[in-house]
Structure formats: structure tokens, C-alpha cells
Write a protein that binds this DNA or RNA. Structure first.
Length: 575
RNA sequence: GGCGGCGUAGCUCAGCUGGUCAGAGCGGGGAUCUCAUAAGUCCCAGGUCGGAGGUUCGAGUCCUCCCGCCGCCA
């Protein structure tokens, strides 16, 4: 028992981050990438800090929409249809270095078992009953709408539309299983009040809290559909005449992916989770210690359109089943393109794969993070994306490259400080207070940076974080520019070069979560060994052996300049 | 209609609990170095911090009202 609690404490640092699981019948777009990116950076940063971290993403493959799309595409079975589709999402993740630990599909056998289990628990605890559901149903939205959200179709007599999605709705009555959501209103409010970070950012939390507190009792939620209508879904336990509602099904993936409900409930010490979909994963399985702790430390990253499902429905399901709630739900905005909502009809849907091909995946990663805040919608502008690459080339890439010329010697500079316990430069620049001060400030900033990263990543404040990085890069460039190392005596020259390269080395190490591939190019260029790219080397002077071949002639630049792509050459617009 | 947010230099925006807060980046204009991917560095914006009142010794920073955007809910 004693031992167990110690282990528990050890694993309180475990984290699990999730993206929504996506409908595979829409092509992967910027929004998918953005959720995945936010999750990926968080996950990588946890690993970087030495914490245990899991990261789930995947596809939501059941439902009427898939059923219909499958039929109209000539597939005899929806499963064959989704088998064709989901690899596009795997490919997007691969291109962008999305480093998930489980790609879950709602058609995976372990997931289906868990949906059944979740249902049974809710039923056993008295939160599911059978009832009559009447209302306006939208086939394409797979949901019922209240009377207030239905209008007559101005173009089609006798037909009705939903006010938001503008999709057709039909009035119908059917037998459904219902979830007693009405019993959870107060419980959810209490939980949010006791855990103010449960919904993040705070503006979103306050909005949802207000609705819950002033909106009256939540109506019970229909959580099944007649099998006659919905063929492609998980049958409700002991009643094949009904299929589980897609959201009940989909949300459950967050439990399936960390070892499943039974192991969470029994507080197992360890569980093996199968890896069904990712053929590149040789092991095909994942060892998850203390799944209950993992669940408690789960962070769901989602878009604002599905906030209600995650902040109200999902916690209610969990409470009903007697399962622990996740730590946090992070709600982010959507991406616009040049200030306009992206849509097929406007033809302004940005293709993330094309962007990665031309600009590089890590440039897009940097751009997305630098130009988005959780509480606001981001605006994609290709010219700005180009600018992002330009800056990384000419400010950061060039900082490295300018120290790799024939007039300086990184290896010698690094060696010079290798036998000294502390970085001492005061003597070397005795009569130059300006240079001394610049060096001192830069050194201070570098040693403080890890803290800044940790703080900003925890609250998803990437614009501030990346601004911080830029300001240090600028300081380093200014130092090199104004102190003119190329015309100084060796001790002074080496000190300046050392500091410039430490700037790039340390920031590259810290930025591995953000630009996993580009950071390697930066480190490779100054011959930092692969083993010395961990958090332990993110301090000034912590690596005493790099730069061996860096000043040799004929080496390539770490990041190439590319030509500006004119609007007519831009192929981001899908037809 | 209810609730919430926003409106700061041409553009995108920083400005926590009121007193170097009038700033950064980009664009534009000018100068300059040459280690470097024609990359770098430096200087230049006189903006009444949407408008009008109020609180205060003192307000982008708090209060009220008005105007203009936007979000969520109904």
C-alpha cells in the first residue's frame, strides 16, 4: 500500500493529451492540424521534461454521415470505406511530425468493447432509460434541433432547415435511449467552480459556466438511434434494435486509448493497450501504467464548435459511470483564410499538405503557433507564412551560418570555455562595458528560457513564447553585428562566437517540441551530438564538445531561402 | 433579446493589480557593417490609446453613457 502510493505520486507527473477524433470523410484541413499541433507540442514538451506522456488522436468512423457517404461512393460496407479514408489523417500526422502514441479508430475492437462497457455502467447506475423522442432531425448534422432552431426553407416549399447549419431537418418521432443529463447540471457547475482550470481559457469557462447556471435544467440527452435508420454504429448492449449515438461512441475513445474502463475502474498498476491502426508501430502495443492516474491527468484539446460535448456531456457520462474526470479541456478557435471563413464554396480551403510541401512542415508549425491565440480565431495568410520562413532563414539560420565562416572557429570557442566552471567574460572585455553588458544580458536570458518555455507551454501562449525566442535571436545577432568578432583578438572573438552559438544551441534544444525537424537541422549544422539534445543540455556551457566540423568549407546552410510564391502559383485553393 | 469581449502608429497586435505605457513586429523612408543564405545592424511613425462624461494628486489601465465591430446563448 505504501509502495503503491509512492508510485502513484511518481506518476502524478504523467500526462495524456488528446485531439478530437475526426470524421474521416472530410479531407484533413488546417483545423485538424491545429488541434493536433497544440497537442503534439504539449506532449513533446512533457517528454522533453522527462515526464511520462501519452497522446491520442484518431478518427470517428461511425454514424449516418459515414453510412450515407459510403453508399454513395459505392462501398458495400462502411468499414471498407473508412479503411480507405483514415490513412489520410495518418499521413497528415506523419508529414507534420505529430508524435501520437495511439491513433484510435472508433471501429477498433478495444474501443467498441469500451463503449459497451461505458453504456452498461451508466445503465447499471440508473442514468439510462428508454423514451420517446420527437423533434426536428437533421440527417447531415446527425442531430435533433429544438423548435427554435428550425425555419421554413425559403427555396423549398414544405421543407425545413436548421438555422445554423442550414441543413434540412425533418420532424420525426422515435424510440431512443436517454441519458439523464438533467441530473448533472449542478455537479458539472460544482466541478468547474472547484477546478477553475477545468475549462481553459478562462473566457470560455466563464461563458459555459454562465450558461449552465442560468440556462435552467439541462434536458435529458438522446443517446441511441433506431438501427433501422442508423445501420452503421455500435449496437446498444442487449438491444440490437438501437445503435449508440455517435457522440457517446466517439467521446469514449479517450478511455479506450489509455487501457480501457475496467483497468481505470480497478486502478490497475499497468495495462497493455493494443495499437490497431498504426502499421508503422512494430510493437503494436503500448504499456500504460496506472491508467486511472492517466485519466485524471488527461487534457482534451478541442475546437470551440465541440465545447459543449466535451465540457458538459462528457463529464456527465464519466460521473454517471463512476469514472474520474479529466484534468482539463482546452478550447481553441478556428482558422480563417485572409479573414474569411474557409469553405468549399468559396474555394479558399487551405491544404496543409501543400503548405508543408512548399514551405516545410516546421515552418507551418511555427506560423500556426505564432499567429494564434486560444480565445480568438486565427487568420491564415500565405504571405505571412512566407515571412515566417524568411525570418527563420535570415535571423536564426543566418545567425548560425555567419559563425560558420572561415574567420571564426566554433570548436575552438567552445573548447575555450570547456575547462571553466563558469562562463567568465568580464576580464576579456574589461574596457568595454557595452559588449560586457550585452553578453551578460544574453547569458541571463538564455538561462531563464527553459522556465519561460515551461510557463508558456502550460498555458498554450505560443505567440508570447515565440516572441521571446525572437527577441533573444535578435540580441545575439546584434551582439555579433556590433561587437565585430571578425576583427578582434582570439579570446574576444571566441567569447562572442561562443555566446552566439550557445544562443542557437540552447534555443534549438528548447524548440524541439515546436519545430522537431528544423531544430535538428540547426543543431546538426553546429555538430551538436544527438545525445546532447536533452533538457540537461539546455543551459549555457553545458555542452563542451560541439562545433567540430562546423567551420569546414562546403557545408550546406541549415535552412534555405526559397522564392516567394505568387498568388497565381499558390495551389492551396482546392477546387 | 440576454450575457461576454473588443475598438492603441498604414497593417497585425503587446500593454498584469491605475503613476518611464505611449510600445513591438511587418510595411514605408533613411543610414551603415561585410563574419553570413544580397543575409545583418541602426535611425525615422509626432498615433488626442473609438467618442463623451466621471472617480483620482494622477487613467489605454477603474465607473457611467454613446458609437462601431465580434463571440456565445436565446
Amino acid at each position: 500500500m505504501q509502495c503503491r502510493s509512492i508510485v502513484h505520486r511518481l506518476y502524478s507527473k504523467v500526462s495524456h493529451v488528446t485531439t478530437p477524433i475526426f470524421y474521416p470523410n472530410a479531407k484533413p484541413h488546417l483545423g485538424h492540424l491545429y488541434s493536433n499541433l497544440l497537442s503534439d507540442v504539449y506532449h513533446r514538451w512533457q517528454l522533453f521534461k522527462g515526464n511520462l506522456s501519452f497522446f491520442t488522436t484518431g478518427t470517428d468512423e461511425h454514424g449516418l454521415k459515414i453510412q450515407c457517404a459510403s453508399e454513395s461512393n459505392g462501398f458495400d460496407q462502411p468499414k471498407k470505406f473508412v479503411d480507405k479514408l483514415y490513412p489520410e489523417f495518418v499521413q497528415l500526422d506523419k508529414i507534420y511530425g505529430i508524435n501520437y502514441t495511439r491513433f484510435i479508430r472508433t471501429t477498433d475492437p478495444d474501443h467498441i468493447e469500451n463503449v459497451v462497457k461505458l453504456w452498461e455502467l451508466c445503465l447499471k447506475n440508473g442514468y439510462i432509460y428508454m423514451g420517446e423522442h420527437k423533434g426536428w432531425y437533421s440527417i447531415s448534422d446527425e442531430t435533433f434541433y429544438p423548435e427554435s432552431k428550425v425555419i421554413k426553407d425559403p427555396k423549398n416549399d414544405g421543407k425545413y432547415l436548421n438555422t445554423e447549419s442550414k441543413n434540412e431537418v425533418v420532424y420525426q418521432s422515435e424510440t431512443n435511449y436517454f441519458f439523464r443529463l438533467s441530473l448533472f447540471n449542478k455537479k458539472i457547475v460544482d466541478h468547474i467552480r472547484k477546478n477553475p482550470d477545468f475549462i481553459f481559457p478562462a473566457s470560455k469557462r466563464d461563458q459555459i459556466l454562465k450558461e449552465l447556471e442560468t440556462g435552467g435544467t439541462l434536458p435529458d440527452l438522446s443517446i441511441s438511434r433506431p438501427s433501422a435508420r442508423l445501420k452503421w454504429g455500435i449496437p446498444t448492449p442487449n438491444d440490437p434494435s438501437q445503435k449508440v449515438y455517435v457522440w457517446f461512441d466517439a467521446l469514449c475513445n479517450y478511455l479506450s486509448s489509455i487501457g480501457g474502463i475496467p483497468s481505470i475502474l480497478s486502478d490497475a498498476t499497468e495495462v497493455v493497450s493494443r495499437h490497431y491502426s498504426d502499421k508503422s508501430n512494430v510493437k503494436g502495443q503500448l504499456l500504460i501504467p496506472y491508467p486511472k492516474e492517466v485519466q485524471r491527468n488527461t487534457i482534451h484539446v478541442i475546437g470551440k464548435d465541440i465545447a459543449k460535448f466535451h465540457t458538459v456531456y462528457w463529464p456527465s457520462f464519466l460521473l454517471a459511470a463512476g469514472l474520474p474526470l479529466p484534468r482539463q479541456i482546452v478550447v481553441h478557435g478556428h482558422w480563417l483564410c485572409n479573414g474569411m471563413k474557409m469553405s468549399k464554396s468559396l474555394g479558399n480551403v487551405v491544404d496543409p499538405i501543400d503548405m508543408a510541401r512548399y514551405y516545410g512542415a516546421d515552418i507551418v508549425r511555427w506560423f500556426l503557433l505564432e499567429n494564434s491565440k486560444l480565445e480568438e480565431d486565427g487568420d491564415f495568410q500565405e504571405a505571412k507564412l512566407y515571412e515566417t520562413r524568411e525570418l527563420l532563414v535570415s535571423k536564426w539560420g543566418n545567425l548560425i551560418n555567419r559563425c560558420c565562416g572561415s574567420k571564426s572557429n566554433i570548436e575552438r570557442a567552445v573548447m575555450k570555455f570547456s575547462d571553466k566552471a563558469n562562463f567568465q567574460f568580464q576580464e576579456i572585455f574589461q574596457n568595454e562595458p557595452i559588449v560586457s553588458e550585452r553578453i551578460e544580458n544574453l547569458a541571463k536570458l538564455l538561462n531563464k528560457s527553459q522556465e519561460v518555455f515551461d510557463e508558456k507551454i502550460a498555458i498554450f501562449q505560443y505567440p508570447q513564447l515565440l516572441r521571446h525566442v525572437w527577441s533573444i535571436i535578435n540580441d545575439a545577432n546584434t551582439l555579433v553585428q556590433n561587437s565585430r568578432p571578425w576583427e578582434r583578438e582570439l579570446d574576444q572573438q571566441d567569447t562572442i562566437i561562443f555566446l552566439a552559438m550557445e544562443t542557437s544551441r540552447i534555443l534549438s534544444i528548447l524548440c524541439q517540441s515546436i519545430i522537431p525537424s528544423l531544430s535538428q537541422s540547426f543543431l546538426d549544422r553546429i555538430d551538436v551530438s544527438k545525445e546532447k539534445r536533452t533538457i540537461n543540455y539546455a543551459r549555457l556551457g553545458s555542452d563542451k564538445t560541439y562545433g567540430k566540423q562546423s567551420n569546414k568549407k562546403g557545408r550546406e546552410v541549415p535552412l534555405k531561402k526559397i522564392p516567394f510564391r505568387l498568388p497565381e502559383e499558390q495551389t492551396n485553393m482546392r477546387s
